[in-house]
Simulated assay, not measured.
Amino acid sequence: MVMFADRKDAGKRLAEKLSKYRGKDAVILALPRGGVVVGYEIARTLNLPLDIVVVRKIGHPGNPEYAICAVDEKGSLLCNKAEIRSVDQDWLKKEILRQKNEALRRIRVYRGGRNPKKISGKIAILVDDGIATGLTIRVAMQSIRKQNPEELIVAVSVAPHDTVTELEKEADKVIVIDNDLNYLGAVGAYYSHFPQVSDEEVIELLNSQ
Rank of each mutant, 00 (worst) to 15 (best):
P64Y: 02
E65R: 06
E65H: 07
E65S: 07
E65I: 00
E65K: 03
Y66H: 10
A67Y: 01
C69D: 09
C69Q: 12
V71Y: 13
D72C: 07
D72G: 13
E73D: 15
K74W: 09
K74Q: 14
K74E: 15
G75K: 02
G75C: 08
S76G: 01
S76P: 00
L78I: 13
C79Q: 00
C79R: 01
C79P: 01
N80T: 09
N80F: 03
K81E: 10
E83F: 15
E83I: 14
I84D: 03
I84P: 05
S86K: 14
S86Y: 09
S86G: 06
D88A: 09
D88C: 06
Q89D: 10
D90N: 15
D90E: 14
L92C: 05
K94L: 11
K94T: 13
I96T: 08
I96A: 04
I96F: 11
L97N: 14
L97W: 06
R98S: 15
K100M: 15
E102R: 13
A103T: 06
A103K: 03
A103V: 04
A103F: 02
A103M: 02
R105I: 08
R105L: 12
R105D: 07
R106M: 14
R106E: 11
I107F: 12
V109W: 12
Y110V: 08
G112Y: 05
G112P: 06
R114Q: 08
N115A: 09
N115P: 00
P116I: 03
K117L: 11
K118I: 12
K118N: 14
I119Q: 06
K122M: 08
K122G: 09
I123D: 05
A124W: 11
A124P: 10
A124S: 15
D128A: 10
D128G: 07
D128I: 07
D128P: 11
D129P: 08
D129K: 04
D129S: 09
D129C: 06
G130I: 05
G130S: 04
I131Y: 01
A132I: 04
A132H: 04
L135I: 10
L135V: 12
T136P: 05
V139G: 09
V139N: 07
A140H: 01
M141V: 11
M141A: 15
Q142K: 11
Q142V: 04
S143W: 03
I144Q: 01
I144G: 02
R145A: 12
K146G: 03
N148C: 06
N148Y: 07
E150S: 15
L152I: 09
L152K: 00
I153D: 03
I153L: 03
I153G: 00
V154Q: 00
A155N: 02
